[in-house]
Structures are given as C-alpha cells and as structure tokens.
C-alpha cells in the first residue's frame, strides 16, 4: 500500500511540474500557433536561476524556511526573457510553421549554451533545503512536504489560469484570439500586445516550473532538451492548445512514468512514446484537442 502511494505521489509531483511547462507550451500554441521548443529551455533557465536566487538570498539573510519565495521570485523575474524571444519570433509570424519551429530550435541551441556560459557544466543544486520542511506521513508512505507544496502550488496555478482565461476580460480576449485571429483583430484587439503577453505568460510558466522543481533535483544543462520531449508527449496526448489537455496529459505522463520506473524501468519513456504515437494515429487532435485555450 505505502509503495503504491509512494509511486502515485511521485508521479503527481512530476505531473505538476510537467503541467506548468506544458501549460506554457499550450497557451503559446493556442494563440500564436507556434510550437515552442524553447519552453524546455525556459524550464532549465528557471532551474538555474532558482538555485542562484536561493543561494544569494540565503547568503543575504533570508530565513531558510522562506527559500520558496526566492525560487518563485527567480522564476517570475525571468519573465523578461519572454518579450525578447517573442520579438524574435515576430519576424516569422507569416511564414510556414516549419520556419517557426526551427526558430524556436535556434533559441533552444542558444539558451543551452547561455546556461553553460553562466553556470558552467557542473551540476547545480540547492543542497539539503529540499527536506527543510520535513516529511509527511501519508497512508504509510513518507513524502517530502516540499513535494506537497509544489503539487498544491501547481493546482493553484491551474485553477488561477482557468479563472483568468474564462472569467476575465483579458482571458476572453486571449480565447477569442486563439479561436479566430481575424475576428479578434476586427474587433479591435491589439494583436501585438496579446502575443507578447501570452508568450510572456508561457515563458513564466516554464521558468516557474524549473524553479519549483530544482530543490528536488540538480540542475544540469541537458535538463531543458530532456524536458521538452516530455512536455511534447503531454501536449500531444492532451491535445495541442488545450489547457485541460495539458492537465490530463501531464497526469498521464507523470503517473505512468512513475509506475513504469517502479515496476518495469526498461519501458519507462518507451511506453510514453508508444502512447503518443497511438494518440497521434487514432486521435491526432489529442484527448482534448479542438477545445479553446
């Protein structure tokens, strides 16, 4: 029993991080119709900046239990990357999506070296902070409280995103743009501004995901390109452009991977890609495809 809970909880933890990155991918795809390969790089960037932010702020006298604030601050501070990359992508909005994809690939290449340039090639971690909130006993299995915090934060962000997109004026504008760009433009929506805002939102979701995951692992330079293929699996399974798809897809990928690792480690990602291919073949729009962002 405790084993099952262990596996499930680690799966849900992975899923909550995956959801953040995938949600960033989705919101950008939904509105800009660009599959942003660089969202994995934003995640890596968030992780590195998260570590540095924690180390600085602890050295500057931040009480240890408040290190989460430094992480979140670091993730949010990276928002400035969004408009820069969006400015680059703006040059190819009217081109075939192959060029847009390749331009985001160029950003992946550049950001990979930028992280190496700034932080070096050695793994980076926040050390023992991970367990500083202690462990909780749930149904006979011990879980780091930090994991529960991240899961909670992710749920909060999911709910918040849902509310913003459905209940606010800005959300309605974003969804209208995703549904029908010409129509929204005709109604006087400032497309350029919406694009920048949406892309920045996508960026922050990625960097926040990276910042939040980092206490539980170590930052390495390949983490971005490794995560993007998982996020890719999530959005394909869930359906491109759909927020509900990101949520369900993240749960499927996160939990299945955790189960596979615990029971049959040799099938791990193999299983995920088989599901991805299955979904693409049977239902190319994914489980929730076609739904608005």
């Amino acid at each position: 029993m405790s084993n099952v809970v262990d596996v499930l909880l680690s799966g849900v933890f992975a899923a909550s991080i995956l959801f953040l990155v995938a949600a960033g991918l989705q919101v950008v795809f939904g509105v800009l119709k660009i599959f942003n390969l660089a969202c994995g790089s934003f995640y890596a960037l968030g992780a590195y900046v998260g570590v540095s932010a924690v180390n600085w702020s602890l050295a500057a006298g931040l009480p240890r239990p408040l290190f989460v604030l430094a992480l979140v601050g670091g993730g949010l501070a990276l928002a400035f990357v969004g408009p820069i990359v969006e400015r680059l992508l703006r040059t190819v909005y009217d081109r075939d999506e192959a060029f847009q994809l390749l331009l985001t690939f160029a950003v992946v290449l550049m950001l990979e070296d930028v992280t190496q340039l700034v932080w070096g090639t050695a793994p980076y971690s926040t050390g023992a902070l991970y367990l500083s909130y202690g462990q909780a006993l749930i149904l006979g299995s011990t879980v780091p409280v930090y994991n529960l915090l991240v899961i909670g934060a992710s749920v909060l962000i999911a709910v918040g995103l849902g509310l913003v997109l459905t209940r606010t004026r800005w959300g309605r504008i974003v969804r209208a743009t995703a549904d029908n760009r010409e129509m929204a433009e005709a109604l006087g929506v400032n497309m350029r501004r919406v694009y920048v805002q949406v892309f920045t939102l996508g960026t922050v979701l990625g960097t926040l995901g990276g910042a939040l995951v980092i206490p539980s692992t170590t930052a390495i330079s390949e983490m971005g390109i490794e995560l993007i293929v998982q996020a890719f699996a999530v959005v394909v399974i869930g359906g491109l452009g759909s927020m509900r798809g990101a949520l369900v897809g993240a749960l499927i990928v996160g939990v299945l991977r955790a189960v596979a690792i615990a029971t049959r480690p040799e099938v791990e990602m193999l299983l995920i890609y088989l599901i991805v291919i299955g979904v693409l073949v049977v239902r190319p729009r994914g489980l929730f495809g076609g739904a608005a962002a």
Binding site: V236, E266, I277
Partner: peptide, 28 residues
Amino acid sequence: LCVRYVKIYFGMLTLAFGMLFYSFLIKF
C-alpha cells in the same frame, strides 16, 4: 503512418518515432 499527416503533425509523429527508438536504444 506518418504520411497520413502533414505539417506540424508529421513533424511531431516523426519526432515521437525518433524518441521511441532512442528510448529503445537506451533501455535495451
């Protein structure tokens, strides 16, 4: 399978097959 799709869906399907083979190489 792949040629039933075009554009980004073709790209994604080929990417998935590539990564499937990668995982196979790593795990077996």
